[in-house]
Computed example of a mutant assay.
Amino acid sequence: MKTVLCYGDSLTWGYDAETGGGRHPLPDRWPSVLKAALGNVDVIAEGLNGRTTAFDDPLVSADRNGARILPTILSTHTPINLSILLLGTNDMKPAIHGNPQLAKRGMARLIEIIRSHDYPGGGHASDILLVAPPPIVATENAEFTELFAGGEASSQRLAGLYEEVADETGCGFFDAGKVAQATPRDGVHLDVANTRKIGEALAPVVRLMLQL
């Protein structure tokens, strides 16, 4: 059986803006939708609210630095055939850095980690699919407006920059903003319909990359 690792933030965790922090039902989260579409493939959902590509968040308890945690995740789940990286929205917070170029560099660092990791048990680096998150949209939620100040414009640039780094490094690329959009309830997260759309749209891409 082939294994797909979905490494992401709250969009992968299944954050439900309608409930103010609960989770979408398990079958509606995009990794679950992807698994249902692929059939006999092990799809592992490794999502954490607030996770960044490669940067610290000093305001939280659990480590949100995606680059620091990734080696542990890789060793935990090896062998992995495909790693899907869906990160970058939290990088757009001014308190993190708010710079799409730095998010691109963070993604490049994650690629480097996957390819250079010392895998236990004779494991080896997986193929990699970079997924650009849907851009941040305007919201009347004052808290999220301040948390992601400037994020509407900066997040619009992520897809182009991620496509560049994918081409530079020989990774797959998918722009989730082409099939899904964030809910205006908080401007960042996805409702059930849109999170399902990501899983559905990724299925043919993943089939091709896994040669199913």
Rank of each mutant, 00 (worst) to 15 (best):
E46K: 06
L59D: 14
L208Q: 14
S32H: 06
L102K: 15
G22M: 09
D28H: 11
P31M: 06
A17I: 07
Q101V: 09
Y7T: 01
G122H: 00
E163N: 12
Q181L: 01
Q211E: 15
R64M: 11
K178L: 13
K178Q: 15
Q181W: 09
R105G: 14
A17V: 11
G160A: 09
V206N: 11
P100C: 08
A142T: 13
I84Q: 09
T19F: 00
L202V: 04
P27E: 13
L34T: 09
T183H: 05
Y119I: 10
A132W: 00
G150V: 09
A176E: 04
E112M: 05
A36D: 15
I136L: 14
G22W: 04
P25D: 11
G8D: 03
A95I: 14
R29Q: 11
A159M: 05
L34R: 09
T53H: 06
W30K: 10
S61Y: 11
K2A: 15
D191M: 10
F174S: 11
R105Q: 15
T78G: 08
V137D: 06
I84N: 06
T89C: 10
H117G: 03
A125Q: 02
T139W: 01
C171H: 00
I80W: 02
I113Q: 11
E152K: 13
L102S: 12
A62W: 08
V131L: 06
K197F: 01
P79I: 00
K2P: 15
L129N: 09
A149Y: 08
T76F: 01
L87H: 00
E200Y: 10
A17W: 04
A153Q: 14
F148W: 12
V4L: 11
S155N: 02
V4C: 10
A125C: 02
A36Q: 14
E163D: 13
K104Y: 04
E143C: 04
G172C: 03
V188H: 03
D56W: 01
P94C: 07
N65W: 00
P134I: 08
E152A: 04
G151A: 06
G47R: 09
E200W: 05
T195S: 11
T19N: 04
D16S: 00
G160D: 08
T76A: 12
A54T: 09
A142G: 03
G151D: 02
A108N: 10
P79E: 01
I69W: 07
G150E: 08
C171Q: 06
S155K: 02
D175Y: 00
H117K: 02
A37Q: 14
V33H: 04
D167K: 13
